[in-house]
Each structure stands twice: as C-alpha cells, then as structure tokens.
Design a protein around this nucleic acid. Sequence first.
DNA 1: CGCTTACTTGAGTCTGGTCAAACGGGGTGG
DNA 2: CCACCCCGTTTGACCAGACTCAAGTAAGCG
Lengths: 253, 253
Amino acid sequence: MAAPVKNAKAVQKIPCEACPLRDLPLFRPFEPAELEFVSKFKRGELIVDRGSTVLVEGSHSAHLFTVLSGWGFRFKLLQDGRRQILNYVLPGDMIGLQGALMGEMEHSVEALTEIRLCVFERQKLNSLYRNHPGLGFDMTWIAAREEQMLDEHLLSVGRRTAIERAAYLLGFLYARAETVAAAVPKGLVLPIRQQHVADTLGMSLVHTNKTLRRLAAQKLIAWVEHGCQVLEPERLTQVAQWEGLPERRRPLV
Amino acid sequence: MAAPVKNAKAVQKIPCEACPLRDLPLFRPFEPAELEFVSKFKRGELIVDRGSTVLVEGSHSAHLFTVLSGWGFRFKLLQDGRRQILNYVLPGDMIGLQGALMGEMEHSVEALTEIRLCVFERQKLNSLYRNHPGLGFDMTWIAAREEQMLDEHLLSVGRRTAIERAAYLLGFLYARAETVAAAVPKGLVLPIRQQHVADTLGMSLVHTNKTLRRLAAQKLIAWVEHGCQVLEPERLTQVAQWEGLPERRRPLV
DNA sequence: CGCTTACTTGAGTCTGGTCAAACGGGGTGG
DNA sequence: CCACCCCGTTTGACCAGACTCAAGTAAGCG
C-alpha cells in the first residue's frame, strides 16, 4: 500500500476482534456481523510521527482513518498563515470523514504525538451503509458528535473571556483524555504546546502565556516540559462555566 | 399532534412529491422508493413565528425538522446570558438531528422570519437506516456539511479581524441564500439585525455597528430597515479571504 | 558548545469593549 | 392628530483586554 503521508509507515494489522479500544466500557458493543465487516473494511494500519501531517486541506484522500492511539489536531489556515485549530483527535476518533463523503478535505490534520491509525477504504463506505444500517447510524452519530464539540468551541472563542477559554480548553481535553484511558491520574499531562492553546482559542501566544500563568498561579494547572499538567479539572470546568462532557456510550467504527 | 413549541401551529401537509424545494437543481434527485419513504416519514408541517424558539437547549424533542421556507439560527447561551450564534438555517436544512440521535439538545433554534417546517418522527430514523441506505448516507452527509460550516465559522471568529469576519458572514449568508433561491437579485436583503451579526462574530454590538458602517462606506453592503442588503458579494468574500461555498449537489431529506 | 525550540516577561500600542446618549421609524393609546 | 414609547441603529468618549515587538531564560540536541 502506498503511504498517503510522509513520515508515515504501514505496519502490521491487528484484527479488530483484538482491538484494545473496543474493550473500553465507553464504546457500544458490536454485533458479531458488524465486527466482522469492520475487520474486512479495515485495510491496514499506519503510524504517523509527531509533527507530521496526516491529511492536507485540498487533498482527495482515498482513505478514512480511526485513531488507535496518540493525539492529533484538525486545523485550517488563512492564506497569510494565521492558523485556527478546530478540534483535537484522540483514540477512537475518526479522521477524514468529510473528505470521504464529499471528496475534498477542507481542513488538515497533524499529529501531536506519534499516532497509530486504522486505515479504511472510502469505496467500501457504500457497502457499510447497505449491509450494516447500525454502522451507518453510527457514522452519522460520529459526525453529529463532532458538530456538538465544535458548537461548544465556537461558544468559547466567541463569548468566553481569555481565562474562561483557557480553562474550558484544558478541562475539555482532560475530560476527553479521561474517557479513553482506563485510569487517568489527576496530574495527566496533555501533549500540547502553548502555541496550540493560542491557535485553538484565537489568541496570541504572548497573551496565552500570561493567561496560563494565571491559571497556574491558582494551582489549577502546571506547565511542564512537554505539555500541560491538569491539576484541578473540576475547578477548570467551573471557571469556564462549562457543563462538562455528556456521559454517553458512543460507537467505535 | 401536540405542538412542540409555542407560537407554532400545525398546518396542512404538502406531499413530498410536490415539494417545491426538491425541484431545485441544488438537490440530488431521489429514487421513487426513497421519495415514498420520506413522504411516510413526514408527520406533518409546522409554522413558527419570527422570534419564536423552535427547539430549546436541554429539551428532548421527539421530532426532527427540515426547513421548507424561512430563516432561523442555532445558538448557545452561557449562564450569564452571553449568546453565541452557531449557524443559520435556511430552506433545505435539517434541524434537531443532534437531539434525535443523542437525546438531549445542546443548542437552541430561533426563527428569524416565519418558518415553515416539515416534521419527522425520531422513532422512524431506525427504519430509514435499515431500509434506505442511501438516505442514511445522506444523513451523515448532512451532519458532515454542518461540521464543515462550523469549521469555517471557527476560523473566522478565532483568526479573522473584525472587518474580515463581518465580510465573511455576510458573504456566506448571501451565498447560501443564493443556492436555495432560483434567482436572487444582487440586492438581496438578509433578515438579520446587527445584534445577530455581533452574536455570530463574537463582537460587541457597538463595534459591530462601526465595522458594518465601514463595509457600507465601501458600498459592499447597505443596512436597510429590516436587514442587511448585500451589494457586492464577490468583494465581500475577497475581503474575508474566504474560498466561497463549495459547489456541490446535496441531499434533501 | 552553539543552535534550536519553547516559555517568560516587560513596554508600548491599538483593537475592540463599555457606558452613555441621541436619533428615527412604527405602533399605540389618549 | 399628537404624544409617547419601543426597538434598532448610530455616534462619541473613555477604558481595558489583547496584540506586537523585543529581549531574556532554560532545556534538549548534534
């Protein structure tokens, strides 16, 4: 298989039946037939290094991915280079659905850590809808969930103050990390730079730094060598006036 | 049928076969079987007055809607009343998909003009996926399209300057209006107040006004009694560094 | 050891926010 | 008919949050 991205390598395929993610209580259990289909739907695996681009805006990828492990982010650029991070992708998330459905990607995806991806073929999507209505429903569900996260981000960037925004983002990422890890210690370190925070919240790097220092002064977070350590997730969501992540089981395709 | 909203009335049902929207070249043609199913899926129609709320955050609606005519907007509120408009809904758009899939609505929808809605029943969604894979695919497509619009909004609010944001929004709304009207004159009037622009762009009303005056001084728009008249849509998208709406046929459910 | 990357801090500027007031059209009640 | 009010827009004055520029620090790496 030709690797669709640089700094990426195809690796041995793990069967879906043995997928470590699927065992998490977070994900809805699959019918045996569904599991069998997904296993055939899966074309292989791919490892993308930290800092590499998984998908590029404007490209027409023949593939669709699910994150097995690692973190990444989706973003868009303006012509002059201004960057807006749209959302983060974590294990269990799908990448490239827009491109698969509508042809052209309108955003890019970059790896924050080394990422391991399941690769699916776009062509087989039709068969998915035809033969496994439950999985088709799941696809819509996944897209609607992404929309819901974007709604909340938009509320943040548009209407929350700098400190609320920062608290929201860090609380949000902590909450998401928590859902896909069996047990996350309170001191979980998010693999992001301050530049990512700035580009997510629509702020300058300098002002982001000053805002984060204020959160650190209150001992809600600590900035460590390779990321942000979340010390008080509950108080972050409180500062942000955020409702928190809805607790619901979700599909894993 | 109990009216799910105030200031709303159920009205006579027009059969989907005679739907005036479906004739537009914008929408993909349906198989006869699909059309028949949608027609049965449709429970009735509903008229919602300007200013009334179609769906409320936190509610569990048993219905799903498609806009037949009129304009509305989706929004979220912070506890202290700060409002963020997330997107606008126009004829052919679906309302309440998130609620239908996941139970609870996480945003509200309000009518900008009188709105006429098709009402569908949530229960029948399963049957849609089971018996009409093409329609299931369409549902995912619709959700992914909404996501794409939100991505662009987020880029705007996060990274564009005040005047770019305003130009983007007005160019965007003009472009969308254009797609659902057979022939839109250049002087199309968008049914929005400056407060809506402010709440969409994450700006104060005062500063929004000053920004709009700058666009008006350049003769790109004119603010008229009941809305915003778009005079130079191409130049707006240029000011905004926006790519414009992708031209593609889309499904209408 | 020098180079790079990422975080930090201070100073000065400016975009955009807040407060306040006025205007103008449309509707309503006297 | 007029007075009044309400809604939405407009404008000015002032303030503050956020941006830019610039420089410094600390850790990691070849």
